[in-house]
Amino acid sequence: MTLLDFTILAAKVVLVMSVLLSTVPILVWVERRGSAFIQDRLGPNLVGPFGLLQPLADVVKFLFKEDPIPIAAHRFLFPLAPLCSLVPAAVTFAAIPFGDTIDLWGKTITLQIADINVGLLYIVAFGSLGIYGILLAGWSSNNKYSILGALRSSAQMISYEVALGASLIGPLMVYGTFSLREMVHLQASHWGILLQPVAFITFFISAFAECNRLPFDLPEGEAELVAGFHTEYGSMKFALFFMAEYLHMITISALTVTLFFGGWQLIPGLVPLAQWIGVATYPTSIGLSLLQVFSFTLKIGFFLWLFIWIRWTFPRFRYDQLMSFGWKILIPVALGNIFLTTLAIYLKWI
């Protein structure tokens, strides 16, 4: 491993993390304006044109606001909990390929930070670590509402994690590899959703529950439990939880796109459009790589909008409905998908 390799890796990490972190304020803006649009009202529109600088103002506010640690809170675990939430959410994106390869300075750079051959397991592993942030936040706040919200939220997350894992088995059987890069390569002719529609539905629903997003956000529902596990958190620690939630959303959308919607494979019709505009698209040109990254971004953007759209359209589930749905409906459906896929593979349909 030469110095050039190392520098390229460092540059990739810095670049991807910067893009991720700057997507979070954009998402905040989209959520606030989008929800306003759905609810037939104006959103933030005073700070900057169309309220675009509102998230920036929020960041400044979070930095300069007082960041208290309540008297009753555990002094070590209370600040640790937001970190436990942020770090897994931020790291998970490393295994996701956002483009094929690009040739620069005589080296072929893969557009993926860590092309480990257990990419999918890596993402599942860090996803399951996100529970600790919530549990520790609730317990260390020493507040009845926090701990109840934390327990309910974690119980919900672990219930849907079983369904999430089980729904991933179907695509794994079809692709035969854990490596996300190979999965995208295998979707060159047709996308994964044509082969595994049931797995997509189960995965997407479980993803909502994993991210604590409506219709599964009772544990942090505003009118129900004050603010759930982050009642006692303010200023930057609260902002870290917020960032962790949005980063988790981005990563889950990216994973959905990679598994079921072709990853960075070009959206059909993009190549003629690009050639008409004048972007070069031979196999290893920079133009093609940019097109791939653009397709990927567009697809992720669609799913992020879907997250926001669903949040502001549906009412939330009651907690026992939520748990029954996760254990009694999703898990059998996911297992049924495994059986069906096995049958299809045995009969050589797939």
Partner: peptide, 26 residues
């Protein structure tokens, strides 16, 4: 051993210790 590392995190740190922490909190 990336597979072992991933399974360690998923099962040990992600499931067994969650059970432990739940019990401690309860």
């Amino acid at each position: 051993a990336p597979f072992l590392a991933a399974i360690q995190v998923i099962i040990y740190a992600g499931a067994i210790m969650v059970l432990f922490v739940f019990v401690m909190m309860l």
